[in-house]
Amino acid sequence: MKNPGAAESRRLVVLLEAALLREARLWKVPVFRNGCIQGADISSSQHQDMILWLGDMSRMFHFCPETFALGVCILNRLLSTVKAQPKYLKCIAFTSLVLAAKINEEDEVIGSMKDLVMQSGCNFSTAEILRMERIILDKLHWDLYTATPVDFIHIFHALLVSGHPHLVPSIGLGSGKTPPDFQAVLWTRQVQHCMACHQLWQFKGSTLALAIITLELEVLTPDWFSVFTDLLKKAQIDSGEFIHCKEMVDEYLRSLEFSLPANAVYIFDSAQIQDEERARSPMQRLGQARRGRGSAEQGDCDEYYDGLRHLYSEEASPGAEGSADVSAQKNVSPCPPLHPAVN
């Protein structure tokens, strides 16, 4: 892995800004009214099932997560642009994924259209897919490179690695024997889960990605707050919307936790990091942190979020950030007492 420097950080900020611009220009999701997509007869659960199915397809075809994410973005943009009938939904979804693959995957990975359709188990004709392809390209003006939530996970991860090298050993961002993008892979998996939750679609990919990463940072490092404010500022995300998104992501991921392979991954992580003098096992940390978050949230969350908003709107002067760090380090709870830092 390359040694990160200030130049690399600057480059990443340029990259983030370009991605944010693209997102601002192209990000669009269908509006739901009375459980249906506005102007169409497609229900939110039909839509959700379709995205889960696309995830299955994407895995079966060995596409990378970026392709899945781009396919979902194309699907959502189309559904918010045209009035689609439910009977075409699967064909639209499948074609969206094929288009994403044509952009993202090497040609030898894609395979022929006929094979893809056959493997999918659908009975579309190739002509149907091709007609749909033309409609989608036309309606979206051939402008398909949206910045997806997965792109933002990668960018934020790279910013963390290059901008906060001190975190690398403590939270396993590519430490020791774990591959450099180990944490990014985990976050990518979480973001894929969240993309299938229709309540979370209302949030932009950049907001969703940062919410997932922040939830993880809270658990992994006492130093999370300064790191998070730095990312929030760079990503120009509205803090009110961010807080809302983070609450919902937290709730959603916890509802999935039993089915997530994430815990297994933590155990693996602990084995890798143990030689680096980890006092407590990550399982304990995780359990404690999750419990801590659960109980602290009820009583303290208002004050905590007020503090957060306050800090952010005041540009988080270096002094305030510094003292937040100190207080955070004394108390390993995921919700550090922030009030002294603000006042």
């Binding site: 288009l99 044509k102 894609i110 022929s112 259209m113 091709l130 390209l137 051939w142 402008d143 490179y145």
Partner: peptide
């Protein structure tokens, strides 16, 4: 060639040049 739809090279070129 009609069975494969728009070639991936064309899709990449067009959507890249758009941005």
């Amino acid at each position: 060639k009609t069975e494969e739809g728009v070639p991936f090279t064309a899709i990449r070129e067009a959507s890249l040049l758009k941005r």
